[in-house]
Design a protein around this nucleic acid. Structure first.
Lengths: 402, 402
DNA sequence: CTATTTCGTCATGGCGGTTTACAAATTAGT
DNA sequence: ACTAATTTGTAAACCGCCATGACGAAATAG
């Protein structure tokens, strides 16, 4: 069925769907879900005061959500104040689940996350996928998905959708991989290869990582730039809590921002792109290391051991990142820059020169640069959570099935 | 009263104001206004089918809008098809008007635009403002505003708001000018200096220019990058039909994107910023011309006359712009780049090297670069139209007054 | 033990869009 | 010219959704 999970509520007045009472109801159901999900167990009265509706209205909304299995009544609250205690409501731990999947260069991973945001099942398979054809890889992924779905179902969950994180550019249809250099995939429509009974969303790994940071990060603002380096160097731009995708869905190509316009040639056609200084290959070469298996781990290891060549290479990579990010920060004025993915592990050696370069080139106070706490889990979690968010954003759709 | 003209309808489900029936009505009124405004005279039935409501519902909405003076009944349509001809509806030419104002480095301008988008009155005063204190300048501007408002009123219009375009950074409150280097203004609150009986919005000149391009430009997409050069070099980013403002409202500082990281020092603290190559002063210096009065006109004149020094300087500026824009395009994946403001006049000599540089550094087809057709009128028109858009976006607010 | 406060629910009402029906105004066909 | 078909705009009845106000229930304060 492949329902459109995203963009259900376009912004701006005048545009968008006609405003009928059903739409109103749907939005109010979503408000209740978001409020309960974000602020823990809450009584009906508390929800009502937060979203600005009356207790009576919230009562009927909650009834509907409980009938759909999206909310649960936990029983009476501990009475601390005067007055009748409310009945605590919480997001259900047995309703729909978001299935997240990740196609990495040398692993596959799938997990199921319930509406509460808890990871309930997880399944990983190691093994290099570089250069393998899409069909066998996706077949393997499909079997992992089926296993995770089965386990989730045995815990009383049912899958509301599947989101797949891929290390490459994904078209705006959220189904076809336009280009994944590290897998050597081109124009591959995953919609035809994955189980068809689940609404599917395919997305860029870095984008899902950024969303994970937005939704799960501790103190992450909702205007930031998330930089990661799995496939080349990618940035995900989050503006006002929304991912900026670009016309063709290619936004965030930080790796090909010119750093030194007369620098070395880049396969993209340009010269002196960031990737020529801070890309994996470039850093390994500058560090004098052979490209091998776990290349990022290798770099971190050597850097930690005090290898000066490696440290110098990372210092210069940080500097190049700082230059490119200066441009990005000047253009976008984000609240923060967050380093994620592989960069997070190398942060100790990248950050000093990066911050230095950024500060030197900024007039006022420099944009704060932090490191993601999610590590390599970001993309997978972001994918799974994107399905969960879609349910919270429009509970009515899912309510029909339960 | 200074009502919030913007951001009345925040994006995303779950957030925003509670969804009550009155809000629904307001949004539907807005839909009707937008539809009629965008698609010319339309019958009630045509509006209904476009926005997806029933004819009956649209009838009552239209009645209300006509009573408020926002819509006009033009009379029966020419019947071309079978069936009863509809009664054509058009946006009123006598209701509210948007007052736009512009504080330029050497001029002041004010105009009134009606809901149809027609400029109805205009008033300009030449004279250098560089270095003058804000108070006398704004006093002068106020008298222009009063004159334009009086003229507009004599034509049956009433002012719905005032938007002021300023060559500098404006804080997110849309009232205070944080920094306007070319005027030498700092932290100036225009809210206290301008007539208080009009809802006020102060905005950056380049941003208003971009909005004008978005709303009035011929074939302008709704994802683009608008580059202009009045104060240094500014870019306005329009994403999905909305201006990207940045956390502090400082987004779009293209002028300080690093082009050559080891280039000449820039007052901003950086090195080799775009402004050091394509800024007004830099180009004049490279061209061997003295900074005088109408510097842009001077450059265009000499370039047209075949002055090779000037042409060379502009060629290099275009090249630098191309490098900086490569970065921006890689980050944002816009549908187009539009040159506006002073750059539009110099486009014939900037474009070749700019396009060349951009194409050379892009893998696929390069992002198309075009020139704004609005010329120097952009900011003023954008300001006035922003008020008009605010009325279209929420007709109910204004309806109360009529 | 009573007064007070707060919670959840119910009955009532208002508001807003839909449905259904119908008159008005045009074209197409005989 | 007259009828049938089509489309428009409006009115009346209806339904859905939230607000209002009242009420019982369950706690605290005195």
């Amino acid at each position: 069925m492949t329902a459109p999970l995203r963009d259900a509520h376009p912004a701006g007045p005048g545009r968008g769907l006609p405003d009928t009472q059903q739409g109103m109801r749907r939005r109010n159901l979503a408000r209740v879900m978001h409020t309960v999900s974000a602020e823990g167990p809450l009584s009906r009265a508390a929800v009502a005061s937060r979203i600005g509706l009356t207790r009576a209205a919230v009562s009927t909304l909650v009834d509907e959500l409980i009938r759909s299995g999206l909310l649960e009544e936990l029983g009476p609250e501990r009475p601390g104040r005067v007055g009748r205690p409310g009945s605590a409501l919480a997001v259900s731990g047995r309703g729909p689940a978001g299935i997240g999947a990740e196609v990495g260069v040398d692993h596959l991973a799938v997990c199921a996350v319930d509406l509460r945001g808890q990871v309930r099942t997880r399944s990983v398979r190691h093994g290099a996928n570089r250069g393998r054809a899409p069909e066998p890889v996706i077949a393997e992924l499909t079997s992992l998905v089926r296993r995770v779905v089965a386990e989730a179902e045995s815990e009383g969950l049912w899958p509301a959708g599947l989101a797949v994180a891929v290390p490459g550019l994904v078209a705006r249809d959220a189904r076809t991989v336009v280009r994944a250099p590290n897998l050597d995939w081109h124009d591959t429509d995953l919609g035809t290869l994955l189980p068809e009974d689940l609404p599917l969303t395919v997305g860029n790994e870095a984008n899902f990582g950024a969303l994970a940071e937005l939704w799960l990060g501790d103190g992450t603002p909702h205007d930031f730039l998330h930089v990661s380096a799995e496939i080349g160097i990618g940035a995900a731009l989050v503006v006002d809590g929304q991912l900026l995708r670009g016309t063709r869905g290619f936004a965030g190509e930080l790796g090909h921002v010119p750093v030194r316009p007369d620098g070395p040639r880049c396969p993209c056609g340009g010269r002196g792109c960031l990737e020529q200084y801070a890309g994996e290959e470039a850093v390994l070469r500058a560090a004098g290391l052979e490209p091998g298996e776990d290349r990022v781990g290798l770099l971190a290891q050597h850097a930690a051991d005090g290898d000066e060549a490696v440290r110098g290479a990372l210092r210069e990579a940080g500097q190049a990142l700082g230059i490119a990010l200066t441009g990005a920060v000047n253009l976008l004025d984000p609240e923060a820059v967050v380093l994620g993915g592989a960069l997070a592990g190398l942060a100790p050696w990248l950050l000093p020169s990066l911050r230095d370069e950024l500060a030197r080139r900024t007039a006022g106070p420099a944009c704060p640069v932090s490191v993601s706490g999610l590590g390599s889990q970001g993309p997978l979690l972001g994918a799974a959570h994107s399905v969960v968010r879609a349910v919270l954003d429009d509970p009515a759709v899912v309510g029909e099935r339960a």
